[in-house]
Design a protein around this nucleic acid. Structure first.
Lengths: 380, 380
DNA sequence: TTGAAAGCGCTAACAT
DNA sequence: ATGTTAGCGCTTTCAA
């Protein structure tokens, strides 16, 4: 690989002039500059990032701390990474993929101690996140995809759960549904402090209340089996629920099975929607599910951009970007069934009961009564 | 951040001694060494990777060239990345995620020109891969996840398609199936030179022939709609097919819909298996599909390890590792239906004909070979 | 407008 | 066994 010196010799100038010409650090005579650029091109010169970094204390490398793929990891998480890597690349940065092992903080201490990265991108941020605390304390620049309970001055990009919930509820209310159930993520150790689960829960409840439609959210199935069972219990306790939004892919699969088992059909007897799942996943179901697709790549891009901006200006005001999920209509949304169908009914190839467009909005419904307050209240 | 010099001062020795003591580059008196180590610990000394790299010409950074997420991209591809990053981390290396933009070769030229990485990990390798050609020509160390038609002296880790196909066919034959169909990936531009599609096709055909069972493979559905249609055409042309292996998730979804549409059930009327899809995806179907899960993380790990080994010894013989997919039995495998069921049949809640899980799976697949030990093959 | 020179933090050859 | 010294390729004063 040719170095600055090679270019300097070929262009018959000093290295410092080459550096200046190539970086625009100081004025260089047009003629000289041209000579230098030509020499550089001829030699296929590429600046050595290590040398540059050693000198300038800026490597233009960002670390993406990547959690160990737990169950439930999928496209979404991958797109954070690719989105971030793309945005970084466009801005002349590189992305180091740092898998978290047993001790994330230790990993962080390691990676930041090496002088290798300018900043860190955190994903899968918990409400109380030790990684964020460490980075703040260590004075390392970072940004978050997601956010802690109190982000303070840290830049973050997160899902706009309020707007997302509103979109979802509007979609369902617009179809005429008057009572909605929401299956959140399983309440296991992880989900307890998991922002999306908490915030989605809160916002769905709020949106349902605001829209004046019934709302049930005390189920949190984490698997297909759970989903099946939760659906049965749901229908037993709230037979008037006609629409269901589910956070977990697998739980949704269970619901579909349960629906089929009782001889119901989607969407005629139940409107089912996925929340925070990619359209690609939603397409794998039959019928294709309506989904609220998270803007994963976009969040990744934003996270990287914010971090890079921050590196350029340490004192800029913190940036907080909320991006709503996109509603991707599938074939699982329809007006509510008119009455609770007889249990165990089988409807062999029946004709359309109602044309989705003409079905009117029934006027009954308990206004907001079934709404159940979610435990954690957000104060932001 | 404290530097070598700080440690040297604190331990009252020369920097070179500190370097030697910490790296074991040359003998250092035990007492001195202890002093140095203590000083380093007290200062929380971390070697600066840039300085080290600048000097030693080895950065201990690997680049993973990550293709733009096309349709069909999923967990598998992500696991390559995380597996590679993990293995690299364990060996003291870091993984740079390099998204390919419009021109992969240009991206490669860029990344390798920077002096930032010691080697490159290629994934989604095509039979004729321009990136591999470039790297070979440029003399850059690299390894492949997948392989070109003629890997030459390049290290690679790939799926053992022969063993995988044999496992699949053994599974089906063990259940009693006598005629099998295989839906390969769509024959679009990409798939044409796509190793897995080509090799899986070849090996499934070979395995079926070797097992003496009927085989049909002239369908290549790329979407749910395609899958549905392909299945209809398949049954029209080959009504005696009782088992179907599908490469594409979405096509499988279509098949399931088509099966349901004709009043059939899985697995009673059709054994359906997914090929090269993660168990997580297979679980989202109803019934849970039997799948041949690719050893993605393992391949990523192997790729990284091989590359690192190669960096250590440039002249070691090329390594070629083939890892078979793992058969993950679902609820979609059963003995063949006894006769072509009457068209449009509906079977209301009949008793289990066979218990899907226990039928066949046991006695089918190659005994004891659940996760075949890595094979080394130098042919091709 | 350009050149010379001093490092950034480290490794490694050469002295002692 | 340890210290001295010379760079790795670059950026950045400071002079000219």
């Amino acid at each position: 690989m040719s170095s600055l010196r090679d270019v300097a010799e070929r262009a018959r100038v000093a290295v410092s002039t080459v550096s200046a010409a190539l970086n625009g650090t100081r004025p260089v005579a047009a003629a000289t500059k041209r000579r230098i650029e030509q020499a550089a091109a001829e030699l296929g010169y590429r600046p050595n990032l290590l040398a540059r970094g050693l000198q300038s204390k800026r490597t233009r490398i960002l670390a993406l701390l990547f959690p160990a793929p737990r169950a439930g990891f999928g496209l979404t998480e991958m797109r954070f990474a690719t989105g971030a890597a793309e945005a970084a690349g466009e801005l002349g940065y590189h992305l180091l993929l740092s898998p978290e092992r047993d001790d994330p903080v230790e990993e962080l201490r390691h990676i930041t101690g090496l002088g290798l990265v300018d900043g860190v991108l955190l994903m899968e941020v918990g409400l109380d996140d030790e990684r964020a605390e460490f980075l703040s304390a260590a004075g390392v620049a970072y940004s978050m995809i997601g956010r802690t309970r109190e982000p303070g001055p840290i830049d973050y990009a997160d899902i706009d759960f309020a707007a997302t919930a509103e979109t979802a509820v509007a979609h369902l209310a617009g179809l005429g549904h008057r009572k909605l159930a929401f299956f959140n993520h399983a309440a296991d150790a992880h989900a307890a402090g998991y922002g999306p689960a908490v915030r989605a829960g809160v916002e769905f409840a709020g949106a349902a209340r605001a829209a004046g439609i019934g709302y049930v959210d005390d189920f949190r199935p984490g698997s297909a089996e759970d989903g099946r069972e939760a659906f049965e219990r749901l229908m037993a306790a709230h037979p008037d629920v006609t629409a269901l939004a589910v956070m977990d892919d697998h739980a949704a699969a269970g619901v579909i099975a349960a629906v089929a088992a009782r001889g119901w059909r989607i969407p005629e007897d139940l409107t089912l929607m996925l929340v925070l799942s990619s359209a690609r996943v939603a397409e794998m179901f039959h019928p294709r599910l309506t989904t609220l697709e998270p803007p994963s790549a976009e969040l990744g891009r934003l996270g990287a951009r914010m971090l890079i901006d921050r590196l350029a200006d340490h004192d800029a005001p913190p940036r907080r970007r909320l991006v709503p999920c996109r509603l991707v209509p599938g074939d699982s949304s329809a007006p509510p069934r008119e009455e609770p169908p007889p249990d165990g009914r089988r409807t062999p190839a029946r004709a359309e009961r109602t044309s989705p467009r003409t079905a009117g909005v029934r006027g009954s419904a308990t206004p907001g009564i079934d709404h159940i307050e979610t435990t954690i209240s957000s104060k932001e």
